[in-house]
C-alpha cells in the first residue's frame, strides 16, 4: 500500500482523543502525560519495550483500566465514572487480547452472537447470519459449531477478531494479538488484520510485528517508561529514528 493511498482514507473526524492523561498503579506512575489524537480510519501501531505502558494505554481507551488525570474522548463520548458512557464506548470499541479470552463454554458461533443478542438486541437468526459472515472473512466458517478448546491458537485468535467485529465496532484495539502464538500461526492472524485494515477500520495495535507495522500502519508510536517518546510514519520511524531509546529498541528487535 503506497503512502498516498494510505493517507487518503483517513477522515477529519476524530475517533480517539487523549489529553494530558496520567495513570498510576498505587505509587507507580505507569502513564505520564499522554497526548494522542487518532482520526477515524487511521491505523496506529504502538510499540516499545515491555513494561512501557503500551497495553495499559489501549486498555484505558475502553476503560478496562481507569485513568486518574486528563481526558479520554472516544467517538465523541468522554470516559468518566458514568457507567452509561462506559457501556456506550465499549459497544463501539472492539478489542482482541493476547490470550484470546474466548468463552470456553460456548461454541464458536455462540461466542460471536452473545454480545449482539444481549447488548445490541439483535434477533438470533440475524446475529447468526452476521456471525457466519465474519467467520467467513476470518476463514473459519467450517469451525462454527466447535468449541474454542478444539481450535488451534491461530484459529482462536481469528474467532476472537470475528467476535469483536460482530458488534460492528468503529474502532478496533489489538493488545499483542500474536504474542501468544506459535510462529507458523502468526501470519494467518496478521493476514486477517491486514484484510481488516483494507476495509478502512480505525485500528490501534500494540504489536512487535514490524513487518505488519510497515505494511498497514499510518503512524508508529514508540513508548518507553510510560511516555510517548516518538511518533512518525513507518518509513521515517524505521529508517530515521530520532531518539536514542528508539534506536536502541529498534536495534534490539530488528538486528537478529
Amino acid at each position: 500500500m503506497n503512502e498516498q493511498a494510505a493517507t487518503k482514507d483517513i477522515s477529519d473526524e476524530i475517533a480517539v482523543q487523549i489529553n494530558g492523561m496520567h495513570k498510576w498503579y498505587g505509587d507507580f506512575h505507569v502513564l505520564k502525560d499522554i497526548n494522542l489524537t487518532v482520526n477515524a480510519g487511521e491505523r496506529l501501531v504502538i510499540c516499545g519495550p515491555s513494561g512501557s505502558g503500551k497495553s495499559t494505554l489501549i486498555r484505558c481507551i475502553n476503560r478496562l483500566e481507569e485513568h486518574q488525570q486528563g481526558d479520554i474522548i472516544v467517538d465523541g463520548i468522554e470516559l468518566t465514572d458514568d457507567l452509561k458512557h462506559i457501556d456506550a464506548v465499549r459497544r463501539e470499541v472492539g478489542m482482541c487480547f493476547q490470550h484470546f479470552n474466548l468463552f470456553p463454554h460456548l461454541s464458536v458461533l455462540e461466542n460471536c452472537t452473545l454480545a449482539p443478542i444481549w447488548v445490541r438486541k439483535t434477533p438470533k437468526k440475524e446475529a447468526e447470519e452476521t456471525a457466519m459472515e465474519f467467520l467467513e472473512k476470518v476463514k473459519i466458517p467450517d469451525q462454527a459449531n466447535k468449541f474454542p478448546g478444539q481450535l488451534s491458537g491461530g484459529q482462536q485468535q481469528r474467532v476472537a477478531i470475528a467476535r469483536s467485529l460482530c458488534m460492528k465496532p468503529r474502532i478496533m484495539l489489538f493488545d499483542e494479538p500474536t504474542s501468544a502464538l506459535d510462529p507458523e500461526m502468526i501470519s494467518e492472524v496478521l493476514d486477517v488484520m491486514i484484510d481488516l485494515a483494507e476495509t478502512g477500520m480505525t485500528m490501534l495495535c500494540v504489536t512487535h510485528e514490524m513487518g505488519f507495522a510497515r505494511k498497514v500502519a499510518h503512524r508508529v508510536i514508540f513508548m518507553d517508561q510510560g511516555e510517548i517518546i516518538e511518533q512518525n510514519e513507518p518509513e521515517e520511524f524505521f529508517h530515521n529514528p530520532q531518539s536514542d531509546r528508539t534506536k536502541l529498541f529498534l536495534s534490539q528487535i530488528l538486528d537478529h
Binding site: N62, D87, H99, F103, H105, S164, M167
Partner: peptide, 29 residues
C-alpha cells in the same frame, strides 16, 4: 480467569449479565 470478565466487558456486556452469561456457567463446572 479474569480475562473472561474483561472480554465480556470489552464487548459491552454489563457486569450483571457477564456474571450470568459468562462467569456462573463456567464456575458451576
Amino acid at each position: 480467569d479474569y480475562g473472561q470478565t474483561e472480554a465480556a466487558h470489552a464487548l459491552g456486556i454489563s457486569s450483571g449479565r457477564s456474571t450470568q452469561l459468562v462467569i456462573i456457567p463456567q464456575a458451576l463446572r
